[in-house]
Design a protein around this nucleic acid. Structure first.
Lengths: 206, 206
DNA sequence: ATGATTGGATAGTGTTACTCTCCAATATTA
DNA sequence: TAATATTGGAGAGTAACACTATCCAATCAT
């Protein structure tokens, strides 16, 4: 398969495929001569993944590159790799404040939930940022709400973890792509559940 | 309070505050002369909200404008206003396909969950887009997983709905800002719950 | 043999979210 | 009151981003 066929199958302009090659989002084809290379199914699959990450998931090219690199070759330390990979995904995290207690809101929240607090895990900074944003926007999150949310999402996490593959490479792919691809599903489902509940409530009232 | 004081309190350059005024994200101050205007607490609160929407929540200026306009004056139809407001938030939705069945994946998913399917509600298109992205990236979402996620988020929705104010204006503000500000909290909590579950699992194994 | 296509490089485009500069009118300070 | 600073408003400029277009000599297809 040459580049024009690849681009056509993926539904992209050739120029865009070349751009992804240059940016390292897509591995090069096998050269068959000085001015020709062959592409296969793996390139097509990768292109579809790239499009999903750049489009619906909303990653930048840089973020997608970071994520794909970790999926392609995860290091020895599975735990650290997962942390790094997930930190490449939006939303943006808070900067760490006071050195002795960099993420006070997140620390308190996790303590209340009875969960591990590790300031080096990037999602902690994300939680801090999200809590701080809600607070500064005048809609702070109550402990009660946090507890409720935490319970619901622990439930989701248990489900996901139970289905995580054992083999490290597959585990990283599952975790990273699962986070990137399934989070939008979760937010859409939340909104729809809201709508559903609202409709039932209006019906009951009307 | 003049513009320089307002900007200083909000921690923003004066030029940026002027930019928000131009873009309609911030209401004008009350003019005290041809070249002076006074700003008050309401402007400061609004600036904090705008920063939260543009920063951690990740809205574009356009999206933030749309959201704020609906919060500022919601129409008569509460249900339609909420739909419109939430549709202004990311992630991007799928385009509707075949006219007779524009969102097949979302329709099937909602049927399985026993929830209302209304193709005009924008979150349906978001769900379709997210499901399609996962599928085309090679990680389709099983019915089992969807059911599990749906249950967990219905739980979240029930909690939120029970706390929704009765007065229409307040209800729109609660729903829209709640969605914008609390969704990042939910995704952060999901990631942390994963980490927590993973740590416990590694500990158990090691 | 001849026209089209390729990989590779470089430059250009449209969008977004600011940021800078300028202005005459007004405030503040000396 | 004179000198200096700041204001609201408008327009142009900028940096990052994700492509997109153009060009080239080498090669392929017919």
């Amino acid at each position: 398969m040459r580049i024009s066929a690849l681009a056509a199958e993926a539904g992209l302009p050739v120029a865009t495929v070349k751009f992804y090659l240059r940016e390292g989002l897509l591995h090069a084809g096998t050269a068959t001569s000085a001015t020709q290379a062959a592409y296969d199914e793996s390139h097509l699959r990768r292109l579809r993944l790239v499009r999903a990450l750049l489009g619906p998931v909303g990653l930048s090219v840089q973020q997608a590159h970071a994520v794909l690199q970790l999926v392609d070759d995860p290091g020895d330390d599975l735990y650290a790799t997962l942390g790094r990979a997930v930190s490449a995904l939006p939303p943006a995290a808070a900067e760490r404040g006071d050195a002795s207690d960099p993420f006070p809101r997140a620390r308190a929240a996790l303590a209340a939930l009875g969960q591990v607090y590790d300031p080096d895990f990037p999602a902690v900074a994300q939680l801090e940022g999200a809590l701080a944003a809600a607070e500064s926007a005048g809609m702070p999150i109550s402990a009660e709400r946090l507890a409720h949310y935490g319970r619901a999402l622990s439930d989701v996490a248990e489900f996901d973890l139970a289905r995580m593959p054992d083999e490290p490479h597959a585990a990283v792919e599952y975790t990273v792509l699962g986070t990137a691809l399934y989070e939008p599903v979760l937010t859409a489902l939340r909104r729809l559940a809201h709508q559903d509940a609202a409709v039932r409530r209006l019906r009951g009232a009307g």
